[in-house]
Computed example of a mutant assay.
Amino acid sequence: MDIFSVVGLLLALAALVGGSVLKGAGLGALWSPAAFVIVIVGTIAAILLHTPRPVFARALRISRWTLRPPVADRRALVAQLLEWSHVSRRQGLLGLESHVEAHPDPFVRKGLQMLVDGLEPESIRHMLEIDLEGEERQDLAAARVFESMGVYAPTLGIVGAVLGLIAVMQNLADPSKLGHGIAAAFTATIYGIASANLLFLPMAAKLKSLIGRRSGERELVIEGLIAIAQGENPRNIEARLAGFLH
């Protein structure tokens, strides 16, 4: 669990609710079914129209990374690669065959399998870099789904405010309804701006950061596997991978 994300979400909620209470608007001012439908449902509708189905499905899958980021210990990765290097020097590359299925990461398993199959180092690098590039491109497209939601939500908040003001203008003959009607109209603006700046845009930025970190870990694995394929000394491999630990 990413404690920073949890605290951030709680503080965002506290800022919104606390601000409403401290300003004297009360909690009731934040609840408007009409604003919810226009802004939140409208944003979902816009993003469904905007996004291909596979990208949207991937966005839903990686959204959990905001609270539960993929865990990868780079030092443990380096230690694992050094262990495989020692095994390959003692038993040859075929000695790594038993380690292939034991690893949980499909990317690493594929690289190990290519080592066992005796592919040339440059072929291994080329194929793994293609996989890395494709995975990174798909994940970034998924992260941009939330970025786009952060763009649509404030605009739909303005749409909700305008629709609310239209309703107010239709009741000018009844002054008792004007104050409540105007307040309700601007609730949609709060929904749009708050959801964009306290949820969607921060989520997109967090996911992009996690994707970049994950790509760095993939690059570490590629360099380590290539060094093993080239038969480098474990000490040289450790020095070669040290830069990824900073």
Rank of each mutant, 00 (worst) to 15 (best):
I166Y: 07
A167Y: 05
A167W: 02
A167R: 14
A167H: 13
A167D: 13
A167P: 01
A167F: 04
V168S: 09
V168D: 08
V168W: 05
V168K: 07
M169E: 02
M169F: 13
Q170K: 15
Q170S: 15
Q170L: 14
Q170N: 15
L172T: 09
L172H: 08
A173S: 13
A173T: 13
A173L: 10
D174M: 12
D174G: 06
D174T: 13
D174E: 15
D174N: 15
P175R: 04
P175A: 04
S176F: 05
S176R: 13
S176P: 01
K177Q: 14
L178F: 08
L178A: 05
L178Y: 06
L178W: 10
L178P: 12
G179T: 08
G179E: 07
H180E: 15
H180W: 11
H180I: 12
G181A: 05
G181F: 07
G181N: 11
G181L: 09
I182Q: 01
I182K: 05
I182V: 15
A183K: 09
A184F: 05
A184E: 14
A185M: 02
A185I: 02
F186M: 15
F186H: 09
T187I: 14
T187A: 15
T189C: 03
I190R: 05
I190H: 00
I190K: 01
Y191T: 13
Y191N: 10
G192D: 09
G192W: 10
I193P: 00
I193M: 14
I193N: 06
A194R: 02
S195N: 08
S195K: 08
S195C: 05
S195G: 09
A196Y: 08
N197P: 01
L198H: 07
L198P: 09
L198Q: 07
L198Y: 12
L199D: 03
L199N: 04
L199C: 09
F200S: 07
F200M: 12
L201R: 10
P202F: 06
M203N: 01
M203E: 02
M203C: 10
M203G: 06
A204S: 13
A204Y: 05
A204Q: 06
A205C: 00
A205W: 04
K206D: 02
L207M: 04
L207C: 01
L207S: 03
L207N: 00
K208E: 13
K208I: 04
S209D: 07
S209I: 01
S209V: 10
L210W: 06
I211N: 02
I211Y: 12
R213S: 10
R213F: 11
R214T: 11
R214C: 03
R214P: 04
S215I: 06
S215L: 10
S215R: 14
S215T: 14
G216M: 02
G216F: 00
G216A: 03
G216Q: 10
G216Y: 01
G216R: 09
E217Y: 12
E217A: 14
E217F: 11
E217T: 12
R218G: 12
E219I: 01
E219W: 00
E219H: 01
L220G: 04
V221G: 03
I222Y: 02
I222M: 02
E223L: 09
E223G: 09
G224Y: 08
L225F: 05
L225W: 05
L225A: 06
L225P: 08
